[in-house]
C-alpha cells in the first residue's frame, strides 16, 4: 500500500450509517457510555453514604462521639460525594477551545484542579472515618496496630489515587507535546 492508496482508502472509507433516531438517542446524557458508568457509581456511593449518615449515630454510637468527630465524618462524606459530582460534571461539560491545543490546555487545567480536590477529599474522608471510630475508645497496643494498619491502607489508597490522576494528566501533557514538537 502506497501513500496515494492510503489517501484514496481514506476518502472511500465508509461505515454503516446510523439512522436519525440512533443519532438522536446519542445526544441524550442517559445514553453516554462513560457518563452512564459514572452515574451508576455516583448513585451507589450516594446511597451507601446516605445510609451511613442516617444510621451511624445509632449503629456506631455517634451520640457518644465528640462533636468534632461527627462533624468531620459528615464533612468527609459530603466532600467524597462532591468529588464524584465534579468528575461527572467534567465529563459532561462540552469540550471548549478555538483549537485542539487550546482545548487540551483547558481540559488539563480542569483535570489538575479536580485531581487535587479528589485526592484531598479521599484523604479527608478516610481520615474522618478512622478518627470517628477511635475518637472515644480506650486505646490498647492491639488497637494501635489496627489503627496503624488502617492509616497505612489510607496512605496506600491515596497514593494509588495520586498515581492514577498523574497518569491522566501526563496523558494530556504527552498529547500536547505530540502536537507541539517539531
Amino acid at each position: 500500500m502506497e501513500l496515494d492508496e492510503l489517501k484514496s482508502s481514506w476518502k472511500q472509507s465508509a461505515s454503516n450509517p446510523k439512522s436519525r433516531s440512533e443519532l438522536e438517542a446519542m445526544t441524550e446524557i442517559k445514553n453516554h457510555p462513560k457518563l452512564k458508568r459514572i452515574r451508576t457509581k455516583l448513585v451507589i456511593e450516594v446511597i451507601l453514604l446516605t445510609v451511613l449518615l442516617v444510621v451511624y449515630r445509632d449503629i456506631f454510637d455517634g451520640v457518644e462521639k465528640p462533636l468534632w468527630a461527627n462533624v468531620l465524618l459528615v464533612t468527609g462524606a459530603v466532600l467524597f460525594v462532591l468529588n464524584d459530582i465534579g468528575g461527572y460534571m467534567l465529563t459532561k461539560s462540552p469540550l471548549v477551545g478555538a483549537s485542539i491545543i487550546e482545548s487540551i490546555d483547558k481540559m488539563s487545567t480542569k483535570l489538575r484542579r479536580l485531581s487535587r480536590f479528589s485526592i484531598f477529599s479521599m484523604a479527608i474522608f478516610g481520615a474522618s472515618v478512622i478518627l470517628f471510630f477511635i475518637s472515644s475508645i480506650d486505646m490498647s497496643p492491639e488497637k494501635y496496630w489496627i489503627v496503624g494498619g488502617m492509616g497505612l491502607t489510607l496512605i496506600v489508597m491515596t497514593y494509588m489515587a495520586y498515581r492514577n490522576w498523574s497518569m491522566r494528566i501526563a496523558h494530556f501533557e504527552q498529547t500536547k507535546r505530540e502536537f507541539e514538537e517539531i
Binding site: 446510523k18 443519532l23 446519542m26 445526544t27 446524557i29 445514553n31 453516554h32 457510555p33 462513560k34 457518563l35 459532561k92 461539560s93 462540552p94 469540550l95 471548549v96
Partner: peptide, 17 residues
C-alpha cells in the same frame, strides 16, 4: 462505538456555540 457516541454527545453540547 463508544467513541462515536461520545463525539455525537459533545457535538450536541457544543452545537449552541
Amino acid at each position: 462505538e463508544d467513541l462515536f457516541q461520545e463525539i455525537i454527545f459533545h457535538l450536541w453540547k457544543g452545537y449552541p456555540g
